[in-house]
Nucleic acid binder design. Structure first.
Length: 259
DNA sequence: ATGACTTGCGCGGCAAGA
């Protein structure tokens, strides 16, 4: 089973690249973040025509997440823990996988900058809610994949300039500590389970020639429960997507799980 | 030369992203 995640930075601006990606890599599941539109504006018919079921948690202008699946899915939207949170950043699906199921959580974790504002407080609180939810999901002892744009640089080797990013909301010690707290519940970072290499990035800023200079960040992750990690076959970052005309600033990252 | 972009909203620049 192939599961991919991609921050598209506006699904309406990226529809052709999205459809090309579905055709080329044929993921069983694709998690999308930063749709930047309401459900009614999502290119549903085009995606369904490629053979996918679509579950959308949209929002006008900002955020918005979706799960695309070849198999029919059951979905729930919103991250538990704060009924007053109106930002569309989480959707979860149960997907049939052989005789059992895979549970997939698609998340768009808040950026958190600037760090001296309530935006960073919101990020840390959101991470606490994610940790609490993940803890509950792990008790099910299922194949579980929590994937998406975490807006977290886990370690120095995951950023082109660790010193320059030391006080950024994506790399601050408090941010990394919360990410480690999540991992320590029993998750495996899929990419790091297969490679210790440096300069494996999933994001390059649009500005200042970040892409041609390979000034990137690794902030899109797939975290696996023990039951999913046992079946991890391969991981790939689809870096070629950043070289296209009018690309997203993030590229897809995907895994293959054994049946 | 050392690189100030890309969205949505809505029609003028601003907010947000990372």
């Amino acid at each position: 089973m192939r599961i991919a995640t991609w921050n598209v930075n506006s699904v309406r601006q990226r529809t052709e690249h999205l459809l090309a990606y579905l055709r080329e890599h044929s993921p069983d599941v694709l998690c999308l973040q930063e749709l930047k539109c309401l459900e009614e504006a999502f290119p549903r018919l085009e995606v369904e025509a490629e053979g996918y079921n679509v579950a959308i948690h949209g929002q006008k202008t900002y955020n918005g997440v979706a799960i695309l699946s070849k198999a029919p899915i059951e979905t729930t939207t919103g991250l538990p823990g704060d009924e007053s949170d109106e930002q569309s950043r989480y959707i979860e699906a149960i997907i049939p996988h052989g005789a059992s199921v895979v549970r997939v959580g698609c998340l768009y974790l808040p950026n958190g900058n600037p760090v001296d504002t309530e935006k960073y407080t919101y990020k840390l609180a959101w991470m606490d809610r994610l940790i609490a939810h993940a803890k509950k999901l792990l008790t099910y002892e299922e194949k579980l994949v929590l994937c998406g744009d975490y807006n977290v640089i886990p370690a120095a080797r995951d950023v082109y300039d660790p010193v320059g990013w030391a006080n950024d909301a994506l790399f601050k010690p408090q941010t990394r500590a919360k990410f480690q707290e999540l991992l320590a519940l029993g998750f495996t970072d899929a990419l790091r389970a297969t490679s210790d290499a440096e300069k494996l990035y999933t994001f390059w800023d649009y500005q200042a020639g970040a892409w041609p200079r390979n000034k990137g960040l690794r902030i899109d992750h797939l975290l696996l429960s023990p039951q999913a990690a046992d079946r991890l076959e391969s991981v790939a970052i689809d870096k070629d997507m950043r070289a296209k005309e009018k690309p997203s600033d993030h590229v897809p990252i995907r895994i293959d799980l054994r049946d």
